[in-house]
Simulated scan of single mutants.
Amino acid sequence: MTLNRRSFLFRSGLNAFGLAAALPFIHPAKAEAAAPSSKESARSCRPKDPLTALIDGNARFADAWQAKNKATDLNERAQVMSNLWLDHCFLPASVLEESQSPWASIISCADSRVAPEWIFDAAAGDLFVVRSAGNTPFDEGIASLEFGVEVLKTPLILVLGHSNCGAVRAARANHSLTPLFDQLIKPIQANLVPGDTLMSAIKTNAQATAEQLTTRSDVLANAVQAGQLQIKAGYFDIASGKVSIL
Rank of each mutant, 00 (worst) to 15 (best):
L74W: 06
D111C: 05
H27R: 11
Q79N: 03
K70V: 07
W65F: 04
C109P: 01
N69K: 15
I106H: 06
I107P: 03
R113N: 13
C109L: 06
A78I: 03
L74V: 14
S37I: 07
A59T: 08
A31P: 02
L96K: 13
D73P: 08
A53T: 01
W103G: 11
R60L: 01
A64K: 00
A35Q: 15
S44W: 10
I26D: 05
A110P: 07
A104P: 00
S101F: 09
L91W: 01
A110Y: 12
R77N: 04
T72Y: 07
D87L: 15
N58K: 02
S112T: 09
E32N: 04
C109W: 06
S41C: 06
Q79T: 15
A115P: 00
L23G: 06
C89D: 04
L51T: 09
A64G: 00
Q66C: 00
E76T: 04
Q79D: 13
E40G: 06
S82H: 00
D111Y: 13
S41Q: 05
F90D: 14
E97A: 13
K39T: 15
N69L: 09
A62G: 13
W65H: 12
S112K: 08
L51P: 09
L86I: 12
E97I: 11
W65D: 09
R60P: 00
A104I: 01
I55K: 09
S37H: 02
V80S: 14
P24D: 10
A22K: 03
P102T: 00
E117K: 06
E98Q: 09
G57P: 07
K70E: 05
A64S: 06
N69P: 00
A53C: 05
A104L: 01
K68M: 13
L23Q: 02
A67M: 04
S108K: 02
F61R: 09
K68T: 06
G57K: 00
D56F: 03
E117D: 15
H88Q: 10
A62V: 10
L86Q: 07
L51W: 11
D73Q: 10
P28S: 14
T52Y: 10
P102L: 14
E40C: 11
R43S: 14
S37F: 02
L84H: 03
A62Y: 03
K39Y: 03
L54I: 12
A53R: 02
L84R: 05
K39V: 15
E40N: 12
A53Q: 03
W85S: 01
A35H: 02
A93Y: 15
Q79E: 12
E117I: 05
R113Y: 01
F90H: 09
K48I: 04
P36S: 11
A33T: 09
W85F: 13
A29G: 09
E40H: 12
L91T: 06
P47C: 07
A78Q: 11
S41I: 04
A67K: 12
A42V: 08
P102F: 08
S101Q: 10
P116F: 02
P47N: 10
H88F: 14
A34C: 07
F61H: 08
P28C: 11
I106P: 01
N69R: 14
V95E: 05
H88C: 10
N75E: 07
C45S: 08
E97W: 12
S37R: 11
P24S: 08
E117C: 12
I55Q: 11
K68R: 15
I55T: 09
N58Y: 05
